[in-house]
Design a protein around this nucleic acid. Sequence first.
DNA 1: CTCTAAATAGAAATGATTTCGTTTTAGAAT
DNA 2: ATTCTAAAACGAAATCATTTCTATTTAGAG
Lengths: 144, 144
Amino acid sequence: MEQCHATALKAAGMKATPKRLAILEMLEAEPGYASPEELWKRLKDRFDRLGLPTVYRNLEELSASGVLSKVIHPNRQLYYYFCSNREHHHHFVCLSCRKVEDIPACGIEALEQEVTRRNGGKVLSHILQLNGLCGGCADNGEIR
Amino acid sequence: MEQCHATALKAAGMKATPKRLAILEMLEAEPGYASPEELWKRLKDRFDRLGLPTVYRNLEELSASGVLSKVIHPNRQLYYYFCSNREHHHHFVCLSCRKVEDIPACGIEALEQEVTRRNGGKVLSHILQLNGLCGGCADNGEIR
DNA sequence: CTCTAAATAGAAATGATTTCGTTTTAGAAT
DNA sequence: ATTCTAAAACGAAATCATTTCTATTTAGAG
Ligand SMILES: [Mn+2]
Ligand SMILES: [Mn+2]
Ligand SMILES: [Zn+2]
Ligand SMILES: [Zn+2]
């Protein structure tokens, strides 16, 4: 598993530093998304020195290289999660417990073609995310 | 037209203040999305006193009540645009010239049902946005 | 016209995120 | 194993978009 992370980092052209591996490991164990500061607080114990900027920087780099994904959160702060599904897909995120669930086919390719056909131009990226309450949280009733 | 805005505000339970109307008017004339500060700089001329917090507050309130829409921008700053299409739909936004184009049917309702069927839970909202270069900008070649 | 809740001003605070100059380190090369 | 260097990390400080706060003004109902 950790070997797997080292490989993924190498494939992304990034050095496999202990801190990077720890960030990936922690986020992989996480059932949902997490903020840079939360991860930092929990990782500090495992290193005599670990700066918050380092966590920010790594999360952003890992997200840029596709190893991690970012949540679009209503509060506009940064959150990241680990998803091992390497196919193109999207997510349903629970705003209460932060669980992230895969959404299978997104059907956006057809939408892209339609937009391009009608208006011209070029679609560079798309955002598709469902926000809500997961099964467990919906049963409980309310937002955390 | 301005009467129309006053009506929309009343329908949203908001007072039709001159500044609100001016914000709506300016954003409606805008071909794309704009930032609070940009709007503020341009509106300042028309009022002897106009605070930037007022612009921020109004844009957020107008967006919350559905009169305006918000852009999810890669730089994570706030941008708003005016869209008179009152049907449920989404947008293609040009990251170069900021033009906003409607995307017709989004087909997300089916996706919501599928997610709910598989995992339970409740979808509260969804985000769907295409980012790219509009026809004009794609022809020119590059990002502004 | 009065009255009051809502809206605004404007200065100040906020705080998540980024920057920067220095120090350390991963990993390729020898 | 040792050397070397670009990449990574440190961490204090800066940034700056956004929000908060209190006093003042105003829209619009009655
Ligand atoms: Mn996934
Ligand atoms: Mn629209
Ligand atoms: Zn949940
Ligand atoms: Zn454009």
